[in-house]
Design a protein around this nucleic acid. Sequence first.
DNA 1: GCATATTATGACCAGGTGGTCATAATACCT
DNA 2: AGGTATTATGACCACCTGGTCATAATATGC
Lengths: 216, 216
Amino acid sequence: MRKENHTTFYNLDTDKQKIILQSAIVEFSRQGYAKASCNRIVRAAGISKGSLFQYFGSKEGLFVFVCDRFIRKVKDAVKHADVDGEGFFALIRAVLISGVDFIDSYPEYFQIYLKVMFEQDVPGRGEFLRRVCLFSSEYLGLACQAAQESGLIRQDVSTEMILFSVDAVFDKFFLSYAGTGAQSLVLHGLGQSELQEKINELVAILEQGLARGGPN
Amino acid sequence: MRKENHTTFYNLDTDKQKIILQSAIVEFSRQGYAKASCNRIVRAAGISKGSLFQYFGSKEGLFVFVCDRFIRKVKDAVKHADVDGEGFFALIRAVLISGVDFIDSYPEYFQIYLKVMFEQDVPGRGEFLRRVCLFSSEYLGLACQAAQESGLIRQDVSTEMILFSVDAVFDKFFLSYAGTGAQSLVLHGLGQSELQEKINELVAILEQGLARGGPN
DNA sequence: GCATATTATGACCAGGTGGTCATAATACCT
DNA sequence: AGGTATTATGACCACCTGGTCATAATATGC
C-alpha cells in the first residue's frame, strides 16, 4: 500500500475536497465498507482513481478518514446539546431530541454508523464504535448512576440494567426515525410537534412503566 | 439463470444435503448475502460449483432456500413456546426465554436474520423480514392491545408506543445475548439462573418504570 | 454388456475489485 | 522562457465474483 498523502488532499480547493468527501460518504452510507466501490466514488467525484489513492493511500485509509470526520461531528453534537430543565428524564428527552437533530443534519453519517454496527471485518470497527458510543457507555452510564444515588430513579435494579433499558429505547427510536428496516412505528417524516408527542409517550413509559396506574 | 432443480438436491444422501446446507448457512451468517461467496460454499461443502447451481439455480435461489428453512424453524419455535403463568408480563417473559432458546439452537440463523435486517439489496428481504417479524407485529401487537383493553396495562399511552417499547427491549436483549456489536451488557455465556435474574430485572423495569418507588 | 438418462465436474467467461505506475499535465521558481 | 517539483491520469495488473456448459462419470433399464 502506497503511503497516503493527506497534505495533497488538503491543498485542493475546499469545494473539491467537499465533493470528494461527500462522494465517499454517500457510497459508504449506501454500501457499507466491503461493498463500497472506489471506482464509483471516483466516478461520482469526477477525479481519477490514481488521485484518490494518492490522497488516502487505500480504501481503508479513505474509510478511516471519513470515520474521523464522523467522530468529530458526533463530538460537536454532544458538546452543543443543551439539557432543557432538571432531572434524569429531562436528560433523556434532550438526548432523544439532539439525536434526532444529528440524524437530520447528517443522515449519511448515521447510515454509515448503522452499517458498521452490523458489518464484520470493517477496518477500525471496534475503535470506531467505541468512540461513537463513548457517550452512551460513559456519560449516560454515569448519569444513570448519579440519578440512582441521588434518588431520582429507583435503586432496586442494577445500574447496568437501567442503562440497558435506556439504550434499548434510544437505539430503536433512532433506528425508527432514520426509517431503516421494517419498522412498525413510523417516525420518519413527522412534524416537530408530533415527534414531541411521541417522545412524551416514550418517556412516560420509561418513567412509569407499562403497568396500570400513574407514577405513584 | 438456469432453472434450479431442487429434486436433484433432495435425491442426495441426507447427510450430504445437510453438509451443503450447513456450509451455505455458515457462509451467509458470516458474510451476509452480498459478501457471501458461492466458491467458498462449494469448497466447504466439498462439491463442485456446477452442482450447486444445478441444485439451486443461482446464489439468490440458494439464499431463498436457506431463508425458507429459517422461517420453518421460527414457526416451529413460536408454536412450541409455552407461556408459563397468566398475564401480560408472563407472556413477555416467555418470549424472552423462547427467543434465547432459539438463538442457542440456531445461532447461525439468527446471525443471518441480523445481517438481512441491515443489508440492502438482499433478494426477498422485505418478505423475509415480514414473515420473521410477523410474530412481533401481529401476535405481540394484538397481545398488547388485549392487555390494554382488559386493563392489565396502562391505557393512557398508544398501543403503538407500548409495542414499540416492548420491541425495543426485545431487540436489544436478543442482540446482547447473541453477542453482536459493542454491547455494554454482557449476556452471552451466562448461566440459566443468572440469565433468569437479568430477565427479572428487565421485566421489572418494563412493568414499573425507572422512576423511584414501587409499582403503585 | 450395452444403451440411455441422470448427475458431477472444473475450465472457462465476462465483469467487477483494490491498487499501481509510467506518463502527461500543471504549478512554481528563477 | 526554461527548468524543476508537484499533481493528475487511466491503462493495466492480479484476483475474485456469479454463472455456464461441454465433457466425464455414474446410475438405470433391458
